[in-house]
Each structure stands twice: as structure tokens, then as C-alpha cells.
């Protein structure tokens, strides 16, 4: 066995990857420094332009609302549910059933989730309005997708529906590592539900929660698919999140250079989140 064999094996995939990832990223940097139409070098003009672009800031704000909304709801709901099920449901088959039930939304294509959401939120024929009218909560149709507030609610709800289960499953799996004796002893000593969580269960969940939050943050930050088919960024531009706005600039207004500049900002934010995670995962890989 020669010592350079592993490097020889790794070389081709690394070269392929570099040409498919690093080259486009460098290409993006080059795009961002030019005028796309003329190809002329314009320095940081495209970056400066972002500072005067109210639509960019509106998009940034909408994204912030979307990301924080989904993140908070998903983590709180998923965690609470995991604790509830972990502490009360003992039967093995019931747990398996929950596991299977929650796998389904996670693997549903966002596009299909968009179809489902359309069938639910559409006025007149949407099943949600019919239900609410039946129960007597509303008299006239709510135009879910045409009002800024309810449209935001609708796109967030799809994300929560798909990914709260992820938070639940990860937390639930983490809770299985809590020694039953310790939890029992704490309970006998009179620890209430909150203390049990804070001092016994939370230490087992801390790093998993970080992991989940980085995954959910980066995924919601780049959200595109279901929003594109559900609201298309509307009404107005109220759900025009960063990826949708960038899509618009690059492929509708055809200013790839400005889009490239903005995309580098998206890349930067994501990289910061990733570096948090890799510091944590770096320890895990080191065995």
C-alpha cells in the first residue's frame, strides 16, 4: 500500500467538484464586478447599488419575518411536542406510528406541498374557508393569499407543516439518550416539569437544538419552491423573499451582475451560520 493512494482516489472527485462549485462561485464574483450588458468592469458598483435599493431591503425584511417566524414556531412546537410524547407515550408501536407520520411531510416535495396549500387556502373553493364558515368563525371568505398578513401566514404555515416534524424527531431522538433513572430520581425528588427539562433533559438536547436551528435557518433563508407556486412573491412584494427577488432580477430583468452581487450577500449569511455548525460538528468528526 503506497501512501499516496488515498490522495489519488480523492483527486478526481475533488477536481470535478471544484470545477462545478468553486469555478461557478468565482465566476459569480467576476459577474458581480461587471456590468452584465457591456461586460465592463465596474468595481463595487453592484454592491453599492444594493444600498439604494428599497426593494432589496423590503425583501430582506420579509425574509427576516419569514425566517424568524418559522424558526421560533418550529422549534417551540417541535420541542414541546417531543417532551410531551417522550414523557407520556411509552408504547413502542405508538412511537413508531408518530415517527412514520412525521416522515411523510418532510419528504413531500415542496412543490406538492404548494399544491396542497393551494387547495386549502384558495378562496371560494379552498377547504379552509369552507371549514371556518361551517364552524361559524367567519361569514365571508378570507382571501388568504391576497392579503399581506394572511399570505405571510400561509407560506409560513407550509414550512411549519413540513419541518416542525424534523425538529420533533431530532429532539425526540435526543431525549432517548436521557437515562431513565436520572429522570425518575429527579421526579421523585420533586422536580417539576420545567426543572426536569432545564437540568436533566436540556443538556442532552443543547447541541442537537443548535444543529436543528442551523439547518432550519439556512433552509428558510433560501426558501423558494413553495412560495413561488403559492404566492409568487405576492401580494405586491410582501412574500418576495431573497431567493425570489434574486430570481426576478437575474431571470426576469436579466441583470445577472446585480443578482450575483446580492447572491454573494446570501452566501455570506449562510456561511456564517454554517461556520457555527462546523465548529460543533468538527468535534464530532474528529474521532
Amino acid at each position: 500500500m503506497r501512501h499516496w493512494t488515498p490522495y489519488l482516489l480523492v483527486a478526481p472527485p475533488v477536481v470535478v467538484l471544484a470545477s462545478l462549485v468553486i469555478y461557478p462561485l468565482l465566476y459569480n464574483v467576476s459577474l458581480s464586478l461587471r456590468n452584465y450588458r457591456t461586460g465592463e468592469f465596474v468595481g463595487l458598483h453592484n454592491f453599492a447599488r444594493a444600498l439604494d435599493d428599497p426593494q432589496f431591503f423590503a425583501s430582506l425584511r420579509a425574509t427576516a419575518v419569514y425566517v424568524s417566524g418559522t424558526l421560533v414556531i418550529e422549534v417551540l412546537l417541535g420541542l414541546a411536542l417531543a417532551l410531551l410524547v417522550h414523557r407520556t407515550i411509552r408504547s413502542g408501536w405508538a412511537r413508531t406510528l408518530v415517527y412514520l407520520l412525521f416522515l411523510i411531510p418532510m419528504v413531500t416535495p415542496p412543490i406538492a406541498a404548494g399544491v396542497i396549500a393551494r387547495l386549502i387556502y384558495t378562496p371560494t373553493y379552498g377547504v379552509l374557508n369552507v371549514l371556518l364558515e361551517r364552524v361559524g368563525l367567519i361569514r365571508t371568505d378570507i382571501l388568504w393569499l391576497s392579503e399581506p398578513l394572511t399570505a405571510m401566514f400561509a407560506v409560513i404555515s407550509v414550512d411549519v407543516w413540513q419541518w416542525m416534524p424534523f425538529v420533533f424527531l431530532v429532539c425526540f431522538a435526543g431525549l432517548q439518550a436521557v437515562p431513565i433513572d436520572t429522570a425518575e430520581a429527579a421526579r421523585v425528588d420533586g422536580a417539576d416539569g420545567w426543572r426536569l427539562f432545564r437540568h436533566i433533559e436540556y443538556p442532552y438536547l443543547r447541541s442537537l437544538l443548535l444543529l436543528v436551528m442551523v439547518f432550519r435557518f439556512t433552509d428558510t433563508f433560501r426558501v423558494f419552491d413553495h412560495v413561488q407556486v403559492l404566492t409568487g412573491g405576492g401580494p405586491g412584494a410582501t412574500t418576495e423573499f431573497l431567493s425570489l427577488y434574486l430570481y426576478l432580477i437575474a431571470f426576469k430583468f436579466f441583470n445577472l451582475s446585480y443578482a450575483a452581487a446580492l447572491s454573494l450577500f446570501v452566501l455570506f449569511v449562510t456561511s456564517v451560520a454554517f461556520s457555527v455548525l462546523s465548529r460543533y460538528l468538527g468535534r464530532e468528526v474528529s474521532e
Binding site: 462549485v21 461557478p24 462561485l25 465566476y27 459569480n28 459577474l31 439556512t218 433563508f221 433560501r222 423558494f224 431573497l242 431567493s243 434574486l246 430570481y247 437575474a250 445577472l256 443578482a259 450575483a260 447572491s263 454573494l264 446570501v266 452566501l267 449562510t270 456561511s271 451560520a273 454554517f274 455548525l277
Partner: peptide, 11 residues
């Protein structure tokens, strides 16, 4: 974690 939009523009 590489956002697809960042790749697809140069691609």
C-alpha cells in the same frame, strides 16, 4: 448549505 440561487446564477 450552499444556497442554490448562488450557484444557479453563474451556472
Amino acid at each position: 448549505f450552499l444556497p442554490p440561487i448562488v450557484v444557479v446564477i453563474p451556472f
